[in-house]
Amino acid sequence: MSLHGSPSAAPARTNRLQQLAWNIRREFWEHRSLYLAPAVVAILILVGYVYACYRMHVELPKLSTLPRAMQAAAIAPFYAAAVAMMATVTLTSLAYCVDTLASDRRDRSILFWKSLPLSEADSVLAKAAVPLLAMIPFESAMILITLASMFIAGSAFFAFSGLGVDFLFNAVRWADLASLATYGVFTATLWYAPIYAWFLMWSAAVKRGAALWGGMPLVAAIAERVTGSGDRVQSLLKERLLGAGDFAFVTRAPAAAKDAASKLIEPAPLYTPAPLKFFSSTEFWTGLLFAAAFIAIAIYLRRRQSSF
């Protein structure tokens, strides 16, 4: 006698969004580095910041007559921490893309996943959604938590140093910083979409060495440079790897320092979000088209892989 009784004809269909959510969740179970690496870096940043605060406490008497320099010195670590966190999440996401489809084939668990009522598109899109969708709120939250922790730790420190608890509060425009970080994460993720998708495609194509295959454009750029045969690949790569900020933000230099000492510590350039510029750029949409094409190829490859 079966435990279920006779098979029922029409089971309740599982919601596609629910399936996507479970598939994303299972990616985080498998690839714990997605959240562990940023968490470790966040802790290191916090420890480094506390140490820097201590060092600053020693130097503060010298800077006490230079409010502009102090302000810059107070804000700079927050920008640096946000950038470091974004770089960490980007690298972690890239490593994830390189590994995720290939690892299913290496350990033969692909047979288990293929035994489930999920299409290849469901599986690959869920994997693509990790760096392109799920990591955005996670990364934003991690950055904000890190910055908030730095803020609290810094405020406590400055309170003890005699500058008062409001020193950091006045120096750091919290709302600006939070919105800047969130917007930066969002645009950077979309900007890097073709890179993530490119590595996903190679992860679907080969069991091992996806990073090497995916890194071929870098090799091409180096070859181009060595042989002096133009700079097409180099400039393409440079734009895609480093160009997100150019399209997503309008930057302006801070007002000229009035005193010589202030020039010793320049505040970071001021960034203003430029969503219209970003979303109307050909480069952004071209990148998304390539990302879609690479993901489509990854789905095709995964579907055709029958020789396990």
């Binding site: 033969r108 035994s115 489930l116």
Partner: peptide, 15 residues
């Protein structure tokens, strides 16, 4: 696969 269950050898469950 909603109506089919497939069990290959034991090594396919992800470790």
């Amino acid at each position: 696969m909603e109506d089919v269950c497939f069990v290959a050898d034991v090594a396919i469950l992800p470790r």
